[in-house]
Simulated assay, not measured.
Amino acid sequence: MLLSLLALFNAPTYHLWLAAVAITEFPLIFIGITFILILSVTITRRFKSIGTFLGIIALIIFSTPIARAYLIADNLEIEMDEAFKSSPVTSHNYKFNFWKLASREADLSSYQTLRYVKSQDADLTLDYYQSDSAGRRPCIIVIHGGSWSSGNSQQLPELNTRLAKLGYNVASVNYRKASKFKSPAPLEDVKNALSFLSKNADNLHIDTTSFILLGRSAGAQIALLEAYTLKNKGIKGVIDFYGPADMVWGYSVPANPRVMNSQRVMENYLGGTYKQVPESYKSSSPLNYVSKNSVPTLMIHGKNDVLVSYQHSIHLQKKLNDLGIPNYLLSLPWGTHGLDYTLNGPSGQLSTNAIEIFLKKLTTEQSAVRQQ
């Protein structure tokens, strides 16, 4: 029962955060274990009353992500239609699927590893997943997380496979990492990757008028900043998975140090404390670059995120709303950092559906403009 509380409250330590990801995204496992424990108490008759009572409470709590996911899924498409002021997407049934919780991930698609920068400082590559559809297709540039200091292009490849099968090209990018390299090195790398993809668009079958940036955690900060600052008309939207949007505020309200020393992480990336390099914090905050010309934005964040506060997305959404930029925040009450670890979990299903709807709206609108 104590473990089940991680589906309701913030994890107090690093290892309990990892447990929270498992509990909320693989709920059937914990529901099954709890059910077996209830049966064992009933059979042995030891602590039968209290054991059964605690077990039933735990079962209910373990089930809450599933129940909440059903409720959110029922309204997801309607809310996104309203947020982006576009016609409904009717070609797919975007509902929560209980049976997916027990299914295995689909086999991964093959990809090409392409070098997009070779220099004395770095030899940088990207993983390119070719669309299953013929002709020039939109390209999604994926930027991995890892506190700006770890991770790589092969992080959580299941979504890349899913998107390629839906008809999108996907480029998952490696970039220079802290603490050896400081900001804005990763921004320069993603910009170079975008240039490489554009120059090789004929061979890679890329529609250069339709790039979408997608980032996770630290990668989301990079994706947002690139989307709001690059003067590239080909960038049509950005997808933000639990990213730090306000670096100044984030430094002043750090994560629980028993989970992660977030201030040290930011110092390694930005080159010092806020007092030492305040301009680095301001210039690395995507929030500061939102304008009336910013691209549509999809944010996905769990309210129980203990590494990057949910308030980052609230702050970003407010700025986007104030300036009239189409946006949607998929808010997941049970979700924590890394909520998309599996596409089949409650968070994974909802976030994947939201991404599919968002991409269809962007690419359908783009196609209509070209036809005109």
Rank of each mutant, 00 (worst) to 15 (best):
S283W: 06
G151Q: 08
N321E: 13
K199V: 05
S119D: 09
V190A: 04
D246T: 13
P296H: 05
P138D: 09
R162S: 13
L6V: 06
Q366N: 15
S285P: 02
N203Y: 11
A218C: 00
S109D: 13
G324R: 07
Y281D: 01
Q130R: 14
L204R: 00
P278E: 02
M299F: 04
I222W: 01
Q276N: 13
D246K: 08
Q276Y: 05
A223F: 02
T229V: 07
N261A: 05
N261F: 01
G348N: 08
I212R: 00
P157K: 08
S103D: 08
S133F: 12
N327V: 11
L204G: 00
P186W: 00
S210A: 15
R258A: 15
V238D: 03
I50D: 06
I66G: 05
F9T: 02
L213A: 03
P326T: 12
W99R: 10
T364D: 15
P333F: 10
E226C: 14
W99M: 10
M266Y: 12
N10R: 13
T336Y: 02
L362H: 08
D189M: 01
Y228G: 06
I23L: 12
R46P: 00
D340C: 09
Q372I: 15
L18S: 06
A193S: 13
P326G: 10
E356D: 15
N97G: 00
Y14S: 03
W99T: 13
L71R: 11
R115L: 02
V265E: 12
S210L: 05
A185R: 00
Q155R: 11
S103G: 04
L329I: 09
P186I: 00
S367C: 02
S195R: 13
P12N: 06
L287K: 04
N75Q: 14
T364M: 07
L37K: 01
L323T: 08
D305Q: 08
D322W: 04
Y341D: 13
K191V: 05
Y289C: 10
A255H: 03
D240I: 11
P157L: 12
I314E: 14
M299W: 04
Y274E: 12
A255D: 06
S313C: 05
P257G: 01
A245Q: 10
S285K: 03
V277M: 05
I38W: 00
S285D: 05
R68Q: 12
F35T: 15
L59W: 06
A255K: 02
T13A: 09
T52H: 12
L330D: 15
Q276M: 12
P254A: 02
P286S: 04
I60L: 14
N288C: 01
H315V: 02
A255M: 01
V277G: 03
D132N: 15
V308T: 08
E158G: 02
K48F: 14
A223H: 02
A354H: 05
L362F: 10
